[in-house]
Amino acid sequence: MKKMMDSTTAIITTTDNRVLLQKRDENPDIEYSGCYSLVSGYLEEEETPLDGIIRELKEEFEHKKSSKVHFSSITYLGSEYRADYDRWEYIHHTYLMDDAADIRILEGESFVLLDMDECLRLENLAPHHKLFLLKYRAGLCKIDVREQSKKMFDEITVRDLIKVESVGNVKNYSLLEAGTGFVIGEDTTLSASIPAVEAAKYIGFLQFVPKVLRGNHYHFRKVEYMLILQGRMHATFQKYDDSEAVIEEIWEKGDLVRTLPGCVHTLTALGESNVLTIEFSPQPYVARDVLMNDKK
C-alpha cells in the first residue's frame, strides 16, 4: 500500500473545560515551528486514525508518579481535508483525567491549559487547529465526562467504531427543512434529509439483494455513512485486528449508520425485497484503502 501522510489530532480538555495546547519546538523542519497546537501526528501506513491518536497520546505524555497518563475514552469528531498539504486530518476528543501537575510532555517545549476563548485569542495558535476548535467547540459541550470516563482511551471495542441513529419518519415539512428526517407525502412519495455532521462529498446509491453478502472489508482512512431508505438490513461488525468480538445488528428504514476506519462490515438485505440506501463519505473511494477481511 502506498504511504498516505494523513494525520490524526486530539482536542484534549480537562474536566473543568480547559484545553491542552502543546508549545512546538523552534525547528524550521516542522509545521508551525514555535506555535501552540493541539496534539497531533502523522498516521502510519496501515493505521487507523483512532489507533494513531492512541499511539500519539502514549508517545507524547508520561505520568510523573504512575505507569501511564489517564485519558478518557476517545470521541471521533470529524475529518477535514487540507488542500495545502493534500491530506486528511481526523479530529478526536478526550478528557485528561489526571492532575495536569503530574503530567510531563515528551514532545515540544511544554504545554499549557487555557479556556476556549483564551485559545482562540492566541496569535501563534496553528491556524488549522484554530479552525478545528471553532468548528467543534459546540460539539464538545455535549460530551458527557461521566460517560466518557467509564473507559480508558486505549480500551477500544468494535462498538466504538459504529454509531447508529434513527432520523425517523415524519409528515412535517418543517422537520425536513431542519434536516431531521424523512417526509412521507400524501402521494406516498419519499424525501430524505440527511443530518450529516461531516461533508457528504462523495455520494452513492446502493441496492442490496436478499441473501447476497456485500462488504466483508474495512478501510484505514475512509469514514462511511449509510442511510437506509427502504427495507431491512442485517449487519455484522468486527475490528480488523480482532476476529473474536463480532456484533450483529438489524437496521430499519430511517437508520443512519456511521462506520469508522478499522471496522470490518458485512451487509445483507433481509426479507424478499431489495434494500435501498444512500452511502456518503467525506473521503473518496480509493481502491488500495479497501481491504478484504481474511480473519474468519
Rank of each mutant, 00 (worst) to 15 (best):
F208T: 15
F208I: 09
F208M: 10
V209S: 08
P210A: 10
P210Q: 01
K211R: 08
K211D: 13
V212T: 13
V212C: 00
V212R: 04
L213M: 03
L213I: 14
R214T: 13
R214H: 03
G215Q: 07
H217K: 08
Y218H: 13
Y218E: 06
Y218F: 14
Y218Q: 01
F220H: 11
F220D: 00
K222L: 03
V223M: 01
E224D: 10
Y225I: 07
M226V: 15
M226I: 15
M226E: 07
I228K: 03
I228M: 12
L229P: 09
L229E: 02
L229Y: 09
Q230S: 07
Q230A: 13
Q230E: 15
Q230D: 13
G231W: 00
G231V: 04
G231S: 10
G231Y: 05
R232D: 07
R232Y: 00
R232N: 14
M233E: 13
M233F: 04
M233W: 02
M233R: 04
H234V: 10
A235K: 13
A235E: 09
T236M: 11
F237L: 12
F237K: 03
F237E: 04
Q238E: 11
Q238P: 13
K239T: 02
K239S: 08
K239E: 08
K239R: 15
Y240F: 10
Y240C: 12
Y240A: 07
Y240T: 05
D241T: 12
D241C: 06
D241G: 00
